[in-house]
Amino acid sequence: MTATENHPNKETVISIRDVKKSFGDYDVLRGADLDLYRGENLVVLGRSGTGKSVLIKIIAGLLTQDSGSVKVLGQAVDEISGKELIKLRLRVGFSFQNSALYDSMTVRKNLEFPLVRNQKNLTKAEINKATESVLDAVGLLQTINQMPSELSGGQRKRIGIARTLILQPEIMLYDEPTAGLDPITCIEINNLINEVKERYKTSSIIITHDLTCAKHVGDRVAMLLDGSFERVGTFEEVFDTDDERVKPFYDYNFID
């Protein structure tokens, strides 16, 4: 059970090899290897501060690794030009932990923003149709004229996901999608992640420490331990162990 098993029939859309990243004296990632295959939901589990969010920020090009390689859709993120990175980002959606909605814009403007800036040939009617379509997909069409401050935490998460979906990305990166939400809203978000996969045919990395989320949405689970992925596989495979670093993680979470 390794992080980069060879799957001859599966296309690799994200390939991470021996990635290291430090902040000062603190080594966050110490040689992480991981593959994301087309069409799968890969859950990255780990305790707080183990570098899960750092990893997806490296994938999105928001941070640069100290060494190692990160290839997204065949392109090395830290080696391509600024223009190529912009093109690549159109194919990769990023849903932030705190949603990161633009406070000064309505929900409609939030959703229109990436579309208007990246597809300048669209008519107003086409923009409206795309906006309403993704809002409908996340079940929040009624919030279209509201400000982000008027939305609940769960609604903000959904709108954040809708904003990334409007560009129809091939890859979705979810940073703690269920953090800070009540159990029912968590289940709704988990269902939404699965719906997004089916409807938009996305491949996704989901960062979380919520095992219910991991079990519900993950085709595979990768456990980040001491800066590298030591356990990767199905949910059952990863937690079928006596490893003292893994067992408490399972024991302290309630799973049906």
Binding site: L62, V92, F94, F96, Y102, P114, R163
Partner: peptide
């Protein structure tokens, strides 16, 4: 204050990942 608030709430990062400079 506006840009500072956007920075700490990751709105600037959100702009960047949505292919906006």
């Amino acid at each position: 204050a506006e840009l500072g608030s956007m920075k700490v709430s990751e709105q600037i990062d959100a702009m960047e990942v949505s292919a906006t400079n």
